[in-house]
Design a protein around this nucleic acid. Structure first.
Length: 520
RNA sequence: GGUGGGUUCGUAUAACGGUUAGUACUCAAGAUUCUCAAUCUUGCAAUAGGAGUUCGAUUCUCCUACCCACUACCA
């Protein structure tokens, strides 16, 4: 690259299903890189395989990126893939199936220059060849050697080629991989890599059957036309990098060829292999950012629906295979943009750890204000049939915040802050609802009812504890007995925290009804 | 099978030839407390194996092992 070009990176998923968290991480790194360099983050939909198209997947991808806060600058407008070029989206359309007219001429340009050829072998013929080779313990490869004995424009006469091109539709255009060339490549993450072309095959570039390019051609052509400066993608593409280098060379686009960075894969939490959808189902954590309902109606959970904050989710993903080089672990999106560098991306695969994901969410939950959390909690309360004010909810949250990982935990940890107990835990009743304990409750109740100190948790606590201690009653037993009356169980929030939230009158009412239900 | 990539506590990672190999999550113990959490303190725990290079290797080279990806008219 001779002159500095404006940074342009792209995330180019295939709409073959929901976006998996590994894909989200790739998109995130692209986003971080773009923002850090004041560049543009482009979304391009690679739907050149009509057979694998899944309805809804494209929308899911856009919605997932939006939820994560990493919406593309280009290629998406109003939540939709841009279908034609405009001032803001100068390289449209951004869906490859709508760019099909572009690719054929590039494929033919390659043929004319001798870098590609027509191949007439049908899919069935090749499948048969592969099966035959396999039965002999070998692998059939369409390469420099085998192409000499196959039906293509290198072996057939000009007339035959012209005839077949006109009469059949099962032909393809293949790249003519040169013999014995050492391709020298550089990867921003992995460093220098060399591969001999003899180990490579003649990849299909364009298929006549559906008049579409394959990934390799479409990718190179689009990255070139869209002026992409860095290609940040998954490790699964590393084996194709030599082909891509050769393609840039064949087109004569070497001086504007993007730089490449291949990210390691996300691995299963345990066992071996890369993270898959099944793992999430089995181990009880999501592998998708958003809930996904397949066209068949199968539902798969997502981080959003499981109660994760997008900031926590993004932070967690960013640290899977990267770190800022210091000991910080909690970084906001702008801080990630600031700190990010491809040089610090780890080469080896990162095993995904659901526990750490939870920890991140807990940290983010704590950083949020009680009021903000109350706003998120209100809808959940409503589902439980509870209508309360934001103020009351915020007060309750101030008392339970430390024991929650998710907003939902506010309810599971302490529903009694919003509703009187309807039943009392049997085991706790047996253990604490004894005459020797609850005989003191009426007096404690009277003391509570008469409390007029400062309305703080500490003030209430010292008053009640002081009263019990002054009477020389067993503090632990009486307090648990009281907690049983207030909450229905003998574990949970501190007595003072509960009373601070629900108030004196409600506390008195609950003590009365506990006696009514549990008896003397 | 072939080609490429990878390998530091259980997990994520730090240490870009010299450290008692650090940190976080998890786990365990203790402190605190009216219970349970939270919090604080402490602890457990790693350089895959083997040869080199070097005064000295987690770090550089080679070999082996293991893991991963690719090996489709899928991306």
């Amino acid at each position: 690259m001779t002159e500095a070009r404006k940074t342009r990176v792209r995330f180019a998923p295939s709409p073959t299903g929901p976006l998996h968290i590994g894909g989200v991480r790739t998109a995130l790194y692209n986003y971080l890189y773009a923002k850090q360099h004041g560049g543009t983050f482009v979304l391009r939909i690679e739907d050149t395989d009509s057979n694998r198209f899944v309805p809804g997947a494209e929308q899911y991808i856009i919605e997932a990126l939006r939820w994560c806060g990493i919406t593309p600058d280009e290629g998406v407008e109003n939540g939709k893939v841009v279908e034609e070029a405009s001032e803001k989206h100068p390289y449209g359309p951004y869906r490859q199936s709508q760019r099909r007219s572009i690719y054929r001429k590039y494929a033919e340009q390659l043929i004319e220059a001798g870098y590609a050829y027509y191949a007439f072998d049908t899919a069935e013929e090749l499948a048969a060849k592969r099966a035959e080779a396999e039965s002999q313990g070998q692998t059939f490869i369409y390469n420099q050697v085998s192409r000499k004995s196959l039906r293509n424009s290198l072996t057939l006469s000009g007339e035959e080629v012209a005839k077949l091109l006109g009469e059949t539709t099962s032909w393809t255009i293949r790249f003519k991989m040169p013999e014995n060339v050492v391709v020298k490549m550089d990867d921003l993450i992995r460093g220098h890599i060399e591969v001999n072309t003899d180990t490579l095959d003649d990849k299909v570039l364009w298929k006549r059957a559906d008049e579409l390019p394959t990934y390799h051609l479409a990718n190179i052509v689009d990255d070139h036309l869209m002026k992409i400066t860095e290609v940040i993608r998954g490790e699964e593409w590393l084996p194709s990098l030599p082909l891509h280098y050769m393609l840039y060379k064949a087109f004569g686009w070497e001086d504007t060829m993007p730089r490449f960075a291949h990210l390691s894969l996300l691995l299963k939490p345990s066992g071996q292999g890369k993270l898959s959808k099944r793992d999430g189902d089995k181990l009880g954590f999501p592998v998708f950012p958003l809930r996904w309902v397949s066209p068949e109606g199968e539902v798969t959970r997502g981080y959003r629906e499981d109660g994760y904050f997008p900031e926590a989710f993004i932070n967690m993903l960013a640290f899977l295979g990267w770190n800022p080089g210091d000991e910080r672990e909690i970084l906001s999106l702008p801080e990630l943009v600031e700190a990010f560098s491809l040089e610090r991306v780890i080469k080896s695969g990162a095993r995904f750890n659901p526990e750490k994901a939870k920890w991140y969410n807990k940290e983010y939950l704590r950083m949020k204000s009680d009021e903000e959390l109350a706003g998120l909690y209100l809808p959940i309360l409503r589902e439980h049939g509870i209508e309360v004010t934001l103020e009351y909810t915020a007060k309750a949250i101030s008392v339970i915040k430390d024991r929650a990982t998710f907003v939902e935990d506010f309810w599971t940890a302490a529903p009694y802050l919003f509703t009187a107990p309807s039943e009392y835990a049997e085991k706790d009743v047996a253990k604490f609802w004894k005459k020797e304990n609850h005989e003191h409750l009426p007096e404690v109740k009277a003391h509570i009812a008469g409390y007029c100190g400062p309305w703080t948790v500490a003030g209430i606590a010292s008053s009640i504890e002081g009263f019990i201690k002054d009477n020389e009653w067993p503090l632990g037993k009486v307090m648990n007995c009281l907690r049983l009356a207030l909450t229905g169980a003998a574990s949970g929030l501190g007595i003072a925290e509960i009373i601070y939230t629900i108030g004196l009158d409600e506390a008195v009412r609950r003590i009365d009804s506990a006696f009514k239900t549990l008896g003397e």
